[in-house]
Design a binder for these strands. Structure first.
Lengths: 220, 220
DNA sequence: TGGTGTGAATGCCTTCACAGCG
DNA sequence: CGCTGTGAAGGCATTCACACCA
């Protein structure tokens, strides 16, 4: 067991392996090598072994890993044997998409509350939760033991919401607003900017076009 | 001008700087230092300078960068002086969220088509586009000169959709389906797994709990 | 003086390569 | 013999630190 610091990317990939292992288990494939698992996830065999190596020894020389066994081990490592309560703040299109997404519950993430500032949305039923006023946030967060807050409000309100979540003592925040948040460092923040993900591709396209032009010039 | 290979992360951050510069320009702040810009984006001053250094020299010793000038330079570098046509495949909650998101157009990303396999959704109007049958995908992609395809369908259909997009000659794919896609390497794929982003936090929580237990044991 | 631009140093992550095991 | 586990090497990316400039 290597107890060095685990790279961030390793964690991300562990979830990818787990997803694949779940599929393999469903297909009744009992055993898999690092090479095959890598193939199926677009990663290298060495990467697979090194990632797993941070957490212990799971394989058998010559034959690979037991699908079911490795799956269980990863679930434990990743905290999927527990459940965590989640609140969504902002019930716009994205917030609604998250509320109705079916996969969270079975992955140990229970969305147990939703908040919005817009009076017209309050009281609406979205799946199993009722949209509450943002004023009820502090009370609900502690009553329902919510540890993850999801920010799905416009950029301008994001910091304000973050402050409320922090004060209410959530332990992590998933931020979809395109703005840099300031929070105490013990609170883990993960930023996801959907718009930027798309925009990033425009750099790729612009760059491609530039090199194309460069080649045209050289050949003429 | 440093012409080394530009790190992936630099591009991501360039978009963050641009966002901040746009805000600064709006506030009529004419000039900014790398330290201030870093402060506002939760990045280090050195990081800011190094990132910009890949593309040229934009600053003035002693006073910093001209907001407007740097903003324009970044827009050019990132390809935001051009527009790119985008198609959304899969008009579920997430697809709809993307279709109605207001920010894309002004950022040079025009969503000009949407496809779905569900007959009940075809013909529906979402903002300025009408949902088409997936069978019309090949024709529409080339007619409308679409270069980016967004996959917002369930994992099981994702590869099939990817194949169609590739055959129709899109240049990049933004994939929201939680599965590894196989595409020719000249096609740029960016994976975004919303569910995984949330799940990742459960590792953080589980790990926190584990260390807490460890400390309890030691002190008892 | 205040702040850029940039080599050099550091640190982190991935890939290599192979000993050792079943 | 096939495949894991893991030090060591290599490659990137970030941070440091300072010469140089307005």
């Amino acid at each position: 067991m290597n107890s060095k610091k685990v790279p961030e990317g390793t964690i991300t990939r562990l979830f990818i392996y787990l997803r694949e292992l779940t599929e393999l288990a469903r297909l009744n494939i009992r055993t898999i090598s690092s090479a095959e698992l890598g193939e199926r996830t677009n990663l290298s065999d060495a990467q697979v072994r090194k990632d797993l190596g941070y957490f212990g020894q799971f394989g058998t020389s010559g034959s690979g890993y037991q699908t079911e066994e490795l799956k269980n081990a990863l679930e434990k490592i990743l905290g999927k044997d527990k459940t965590w309560n989640v609140a969504i703040v902002g019930v716009g299109h994205l917030g609604s998409a998250l509320l109705t997404y079916p996969g969270f519950k079975e992955r140990g993430l229970n969305i147990v509350a939703a908040f919005d500032a817009d009076a017209r949305k309050i009281g609406k039923q979205a799946k199993e939760v009722t949209v509450q006023s943002i004023d009820e946030l502090p009370g609900t967060i502690s009553d329902k033991k919510i540890v993850i807050g999801v920010i799905a409000v416009p950029a301008k309100q994001a910091q304000e919401v973050a402050d409320k979540l922090v004060k209410a003592k959530v332990e992590c925040i998933l931020n979809f607003a395109p703005t840099a948040l300031t929070v105490p460092e013990q609170v883990k923040v993960k930023d996801v900017d959907l718009s930027r993900e798309l925009e990033t591709l425009s750099y790729f396209l612009a760059n491609k076009e530039r090199t194309r032009q460069l080649i045209d010039q050289q050949t003429s």
